[in-house]
């Protein structure tokens, strides 16, 4: 049996109130991701697949599916390149069950 799964299919089950145009997480310096970070662990360890490696080494971050876990901030140990806040009150993931 194949276990290939698209993360989008999982996130599709979740409820979100997206704060359009106000992402709560940002990459501080995109050049650091592109040129200094070899492992780019955020692209595999984010449980919502919010970070993707573009072909040219750059990292794209889209926080719409974010589960607000904190992983990306904690694991970016070498460069501390993630500016991480909670969304504004009431926005973001809304767990139905948790």
């Amino acid at each position: 049996m194949s276990t290939a799964i698209k993360i989008e299919e999982k996130l599709f089950q979740n409820r979100y109130r997206v704060d359009a145009g106000r992402p709560h997480i940002a990459i501080k310096d995109p050049d650091v991701c592109a040129h200094q970070c070899k492992s780019q662990q955020c692209t595999v360890c984010c449980p919502a697949g919010c970070y993707t490696a573009e072909g040219n080494g750059a990292i794209a971050l889209i926080t719409d599916g974010c589960l607000e876990c904190g992983t990306c901030r904690v694991i970016c140990t070498e460069h501390r390149n993630v500016a991480w806040e909670y969304p504004r009150g009431g926005y973001g993931i809304l767990f139905k069950f948790g």
Binding site: T3, L11, P47, F97
Partner: peptide, 29 residues
């Protein structure tokens, strides 16, 4: 999420979830 998917596919775990409808996926530290 791949780790979770592979765990769910374990032959001892899969039958316990058989027929269920997945309604939420969460992550937390």
């Amino acid at each position: 999420y791949k780790l979770l998917e592979e765990m769910k596919a374990h032959p001892s775990i899969r039958p316990l979830l058989e027929g269920g409808e997945m309604k939420e996926y969460c992550a937390h530290l």
